[in-house]
C-alpha cells in the first residue's frame, strides 16, 4: 500500500522537476551570457500557456502543432523582452559595464516592471480566474503501470523535456550559435574581438531560453488544466532556485537541482499539507545562498 503511493508521488515529482528544469535552463543561459536575472521569465511561461490556449480555442489543431506554435510565440516573446527590458541598458559594451552591478540591478528591475505589465495586461484581457481549456486537450489520461497510475502528461512532459535537453546539448556543443553563446558567456569582450556578434548572441540566448519557458508553460497548463495570468510567478521562482542551487551558470547543475526540487516538493506534500509545499523551494534557496554560496555542485562563483 505504501510503495505505489510513493512511486506515484515520485512520478509527479519527476514531471514537476522536468518543468522546473526547462525553465531553469532559460534562466541559466541568460545568467551565463549577461550575469543578470531575468525576472520576466515566469511571464514567458504564462505567455506560452496563453498562446497555446488561444490556439486550442480558435483552431483546435493537433497537440504537436500547438506545441510548435507555442515555441514560436515563446521565441518572439523572448526577442521582444530582450529588446525592451535588457538592450536599452547595455549602453557600454566593455565587459566591466556589461556585467556590472548597476547593469544587473537596473535590468532586474526593468524585467520586473515588464513582468508586471505583461501579467496585468493578461489579467485585464482575460480576467484573473482560471481559463477553461478544451478537455480533450488535457494531458491527464490515466495509464495503469502495474500498481502505479500515471497520466499521459507525465510521458509527454518527459518526452518533450528529453528532446529539448538533447537538442540544447547538441546546439551548445556542435553549432556555431552554441559556440558563440559559450564564447560570450566566458568573455564577452574577447568574443567580440573574435568577430562574434555579441548582440545577436544575446538575443538568441533569450530566444532559446524563452522557447523552453513557453513550452513549460503550456505543458503545465494542460497537465493541470489551470491557465491563469499569475501562473508563472511560482514556477519562475522555483526555476530560479534551481539555477542558484546548480551554481548559477551550470546547465547540468540546474537540471539536477530542478529534479531534486520537484521530487522533494511532491514528497513533502505527503508529510505536510500541500499549501506549505512552496516553503520547500524558499528554504532550499536560503540554505543554498547562506551555506553553499557556490551552489550545491561547487561551481565557481565570483564576488558580485
Amino acid at each position: 500500500m505504501l510503495d505505489p503511493y510513493y512511486l506515484q508521488q515520485l512520478t509527479i515529482g519527476l514531471s514537476l522537476g522536468m518543468i522546473y528544469a526547462l525553465m531553469a535552463i532559460g534562466f541559466t543561459l541568460i545568467f551565463g551570457v549577461l550575469n543578470v536575472v531575468n525576472f520576466a521569465h515566469g511571464e514567458i511561461y504564462t505567455i506560452g500557456a496563453f498562446a497555446g490556449l488561444l490556439m486550442i480555442a480558435t483552431f483546435g489543431p493537433p497537440l504537436l502543432a500547438v506545441l510548435l506554435v507555442v515555441m514560436a510565440v515563446g521565441a518572439l516573446a523572448g526577442f521582444g523582452l530582450e529588446r525592451l527590458a535588457f538592450k536599452p541598458f547595455r549602453r557600454f559594451s566593455d565587459e566591466a559595464s556589461m556585467k556590472s552591478r548597476a547593469m544587473r540591478e537596473a535590468t532586474l528591475m526593468s524585467s520586473l516592471a515588464m513582468s508586471i505589465v505583461a501579467r496585468e495586461s493578461l489579467e485585464l484581457i482575460f480576467g484573473s480566474q482560471f481559463q477553461s481549456v478544451d478537455l480533450s486537450y488535457l494531458i491527464n489520461k490515466q495509464i495503469q503501470l502495474g500498481p502505479v497510475t500515471i497520466v499521459n502528461g507525465d510521458l509527454i512532459i518527459f518526452a518533450v523535456a528529453l528532446v529539448m535537453f538533447l537538442g540544447l546539448q547538441w546546439l551548445l556543443k556542435y553549432s556555431t550559435i552554441g559556440l558563440s553563446i559559450r564564447a560570450v558567456s566566458n568573455n564577452p569582450l574577447g568574443a567580440r574581438y573574435c568577430g562574434i556578434n555579441t548582440d545577436r548572441t544575446i538575443i538568441l540566448t533569450f530566444v532559446i531560453g524563452s522557447v523552453m519557458g513557453a513550452l513549460a508553460g503550456i505543458l503545465v497548463g494542460l497537465y493541470y488544466g489551470a491557465i491563469y495570468p499569475s501562473m508563472g510567478f511560482t514556477p519562475g521562482i522555483k526555476a530560479f532556485v534551481a539555477m542558484v542551487m546548480g551554481g548559477l551558470s551550470s546547465i547540468p547543475g540546474a537540471v539536477i537541482s530542478a529534479m531534486i526540487l520537484g521530487i522533494t516538493e511532491s514528497m513533502a506534500t505527503s508529510v505536510v499539507s500541500s499549501v506549505w509545499a512552496d516553503m520547500v523551494a524558499y528554504a532550499f534557496l536560503l540554505i543554498t545562498l547562506v551555506f553553499f554560496p557556490q551552489g550545491l555542485f561547487g561551481a565557481r562563483r565570483e564576488r558580485v
Binding site: 532586474l108 499539507s273 547562506v290
Partner: peptide, 27 residues
C-alpha cells in the same frame, strides 16, 4: 544569516523571506 549576501543574491533572499512570511500569513 542573510546580511552577508550582496547585490542580487540579497535581493533574491529577501524575496524568498517575503514569500515565506506571506505563506505563513496565508496558511
Amino acid at each position: 544569516p542573510t546580511m552577508r549576501l550582496i547585490s542580487i543574491y540579497f535581493a533574491v533572499a529577501t524575496l524568498a523571506i517575503g514569500q515565506m512570511l506571506y505563506l505563513i500569513f496565508l496558511n
